[in-house]
């Protein structure tokens, strides 16, 4: 059986299922209890699991740091950071402790915390509500970074993240929360971490895109006179290099699309891997279509910052026409 769900509904359903499945799962974060979360991703869960859903005091360092302790004591903390920008307030705990509790204790401890956080632009939000720092999180050894690009992926990847023995930053694209409906399996649905998927097959050029950029890429492809293969990594770290490499070996050309700034964005890592693994198959320089190297502008200028269909199509054309 399956239900037609939006991403935010799929997240909520999965949280409920994982809590039912594993008693050690606890949910907490700012406004996640009584109000059900600012995006309503936890709506109703406090009623369903009265002693396992907590409204936390304000403070992201506290949320992440307490999660390290919960995990050390055998719980499976699932924390919500209200917007990804505020995970910077918890970054020290993430980088210094959550990510390396396992290695520092030589495997004596693990830190199976899942940090869910809405991210990305395109919803006309306030300043500091539109960022995409996946490359920063991916740069922290010991962390996993997961980004669903559809409701069904939301379910499958969140279930895998909560069950994963290591800390996961689970980034939910705000732009997709309600804009997309999809059939989502009702029963256990787990998408293993570290496995990319080919969203559209093609022979001429490989485009790698995730989050809300995947949808934009899929519609930009219609405007391009080429047979485009679109790869959705689903897990940013650990990256499924093989799937991307195979695709590029087949097409000989590649474009990476992301909304984060170009410099040191995750596109840089993907392009490096491609040059290492498929160099002799490349027929054109890899292309990047990304946000610019400026702080994400406030929303009046957001459309000029975020890659749109036009910029994506132009990037694909450059790769194909070279």
């Amino acid at each position: 059986m399956a239900s037609d769900l939006r991403l935010v509904e799929a997240v909520k359903a999965t949280l409920g299922e994982e809590m039912a499945r594993d008693e050690s799962v606890v949910l907490y974060g700012e406004d996640v209890g009584v109000a059900g979360g600012v995006f309503r991703a936890t709506d109703g869960l406090l009623d369903e699991f009265p002693n396992r859903v907590y409204d936390s005091p304000l403070g992201e360092s506290g949320i992440v740091g307490a999660g390290v302790g919960l995990a050390a004591a055998g719980m499976r903390p699932v924390a919500e950071i209200q917007f990804q920008s505020f995970l910077y307030q918890g970054f020290a705990q993430l980088q210094q402790h959550a990510s390396r509790l396992r290695s520092r204790s030589r495997g004596g401890f693990s830190c199976p915390i899942t940090i869910r956080t809405p991210y990305g632009g395109g919803i006309h939000a306030l300043e500091h509500h539109s960022e995409s720092f996946e490359s920063g999180f991916a740069h922290v050894p010991g962390l996993k970074v997961v980004i669903p690009s559809s409701p069904a992926e939301g379910k499958g990847l969140l279930a895998a993240s909560i069950r994963d023995p290591d800390p996961v930053v689970f980034m939910e694209p705000t732009r997709l929360y309600r804009s997309l409906r999809e059939s989502v399996p009702d029963d256990d649905h787990v998408i293993p971490l570290g496995e990319a998927t080919v969203a559209e097959e093609g022979a001429d050029v490989t485009v790698v895109a995730w989050g809300s950029m995947l949808q934009r890429t899929l519609s930009a492809v219609d405007d391009v006179d080429a047979d485009v293969e679109v790869v959705n990594p689903r897990t940013i770290y650990p990256l499924d290099t093989d799937t991307i490499t195979e695709s590029v070996k087949k097409t000989g050309r590649c474009v990476v699309v992301h909304e984060a700034p170009e410099t040191a964005g995750f596109g840089a890592e993907i392009v490096s891997r491609i040059t290492e693994t498929a160099f002799y198959h490349l027929e054109a320089p890899p292309e990047r279509v990304t946000g610019y190297d400026v702080p994400v502008p406030m929303f009046a200028r957001e459309d000029a910052y975020l890659p749109d269909e036009k910029r994506i199509a132009a990037g694909i054309r450059r790769a194909v026409e070279t």
Binding site: E262, Y292, D293, A304, K310, R318
Partner: peptide
């Protein structure tokens, strides 16, 4: 300079390189 190139590309509507 790299940001200048991005700025120029954004005005020209495409090629960041």
């Amino acid at each position: 300079p790299w940001l200048e190139r991005q700025a120029a590309a954004s005005r020209g509507g495409g090629d960041a390189d």
